[in-house]
Write a protein that binds this DNA or RNA. Sequence first.
DNA 1: AGGGCAACCCGGACGC
DNA 2: TGCGTCCGGGTTGCCC
Length: 271
Amino acid sequence: MPELPEMENYRRMLSDQIIDQPITNVVINREKSVNVPADQFKNELAGQRVIFVERRGKHLIFHLNNGRRLLLHLMLGGMLYCGTEEDRPSRSTQVEIGFGQKTLYFIGLRLGYLHLLSAKEVDEILKPLGPELFDRRMSKERFVELLQGRRGALKSLLVNQHAVAGIGNCYADEIAFEAGLLPSAKIQELSEDTLGRLYDAAVKVLTEALEHGGYMESPFMAGDTLTGGFNDLCKVYDREGEKCYRCGGVISKVELTGRKAFFCPSCQHEQ
DNA sequence: AGGGCAACCCGGACGC
DNA sequence: TGCGTCCGGGTTGCCC
């Protein structure tokens, strides 16, 4: 599912493809994906330009030149494709936004959404989110502070958007592996040094994932060879029964607070 | 505050 | 091949 690296990858590619180009066409195949009646949505977008695309956690915010915003969350299985009428996704689309020859296709928006909102409304919705790991104001010290005083399983904390924004199921497991910590490790039992190690692991994993276009393999557009490159670099996620690249042991899977957690039982520890 | 659970939704996997 | 069933996944909200 799209997490920080996938969304940041989309943000960068979108910024290359659609900035400052007038919206010439809007198609809404699934009215539930948007928050206003289809006609209103189309009318408000017609002729507008996206002046920039911002990412916050797993959200993308399209800034329109009239001051309005489009807030996108792909949730489960949502994805984007940028193509032409000829080069369109084989799957059904929920929303399409045309920019002249180019069209941005929104696919797999089941629980995901594309909402037309004011800047204030977007701020209100995003306010509860925890800080960005790559924000200028973030540091190891700040991260450690953020985690101290929290309790519960490491993985639950990593995927908690109110604690730190942008990490989901895949990267939580990858970060735990990189830090040598079990997903079930108790936050309150981790030393300051270990929390620092966790920060280093998070930065390393997410940076690497970003460099390789994330782990989700559907290309964003024709000729896109970047997207999905991290899939083969995942060390534990979705690798149950396979060999650990580090120790040769077998990757395990457990259920932890209602979600799958993959880990190497010999490389990862309680502290 | 954290964990458990149901709800939201439907593509894809699986069984026959 | 085709139809039915079931599951997964992020998030919210409600309960304990």
